[in-house]
Simulated assay, not measured.
Amino acid sequence: MDINKINNYNSLISKMDNQIVNNKTENSFGDLLSNALDKVNEMQLESQEYKKMLAIGEVDNLHDVTIAADKADTALQVVMAIRGKVVEAYKEIMRIQI
C-alpha cells in the first residue's frame, strides 16, 4: 500500500473543502467531479492489480489487498450515492412548474 496515494486523496478532499469554504471558483464543479472520478478509477485499478498479484503469489501481505479492495469499494459506494442524489435532484427540478 502506497501511503502517497492516500495522501494525494486526502489533499484532493482538503482542496475541495477549501474551495467550498472560501467560495473560490478556480476549478469548476465539473473539474472537481472529474478529478474525484479519476481518483476512484485509480483506486479500482489498484485494487484489481493487488488481486492479480495475490492470485499469482506476488503479495506477501494480505492486509494490503484487503485494504485496497475495501477502499475502492467504499469510494465506489460514495460515487454511486452522489450519483443517486444528483439524479434525484435533476428529477425534482424537472417536476418544477414554471
Rank of each mutant, 00 (worst) to 15 (best):
A81W: 08
S11I: 03
Y50P: 03
G30E: 06
M80I: 07
Q19W: 00
K24R: 08
I6L: 07
N18M: 10
L37Q: 14
I98W: 00
K91G: 06
E58Q: 15
S47L: 01
M53P: 10
I67D: 00
K91N: 11
V79H: 04
N35M: 11
L62G: 15
M43P: 00
V87M: 07
V79T: 07
V78M: 12
D31G: 03
A75P: 15
L12S: 11
M16R: 10
D64F: 06
I13N: 05
R83I: 09
T66Q: 09
N10H: 07
V86E: 13
K85D: 10
D38K: 14
Q19P: 06
N23R: 07
G30K: 02
A81E: 10
V59K: 14
E92K: 09
A55G: 10
V59G: 13
G84W: 02
H63T: 14
V87G: 02
S47K: 01
V21P: 04
I6R: 03
A75D: 15
N10V: 13
A72Q: 01
I3T: 04
D17A: 11
E92I: 04
Y9E: 03
M94L: 10
E26V: 07
L33A: 10
N10I: 14
Q44A: 10
K91P: 02
I96F: 01
A69P: 02
Y90Q: 07
Q48W: 00
M43D: 00
Q77I: 11
L33V: 10
N4S: 08
L37C: 11
E42W: 03
Q97P: 09
K51E: 10
T66L: 01
D73S: 15
E49D: 09
D2S: 08
K5T: 01
I98F: 00
D73F: 07
E58S: 12
K52I: 05
G84K: 11
V87C: 02
T66D: 01
R83L: 05
R95P: 11
R95E: 14
D70V: 11
M16L: 09
K5H: 01
S47V: 06
I13G: 07
I6K: 03
M94K: 14
E88N: 13
L54V: 14
I67K: 02
Q97T: 08
S11D: 15
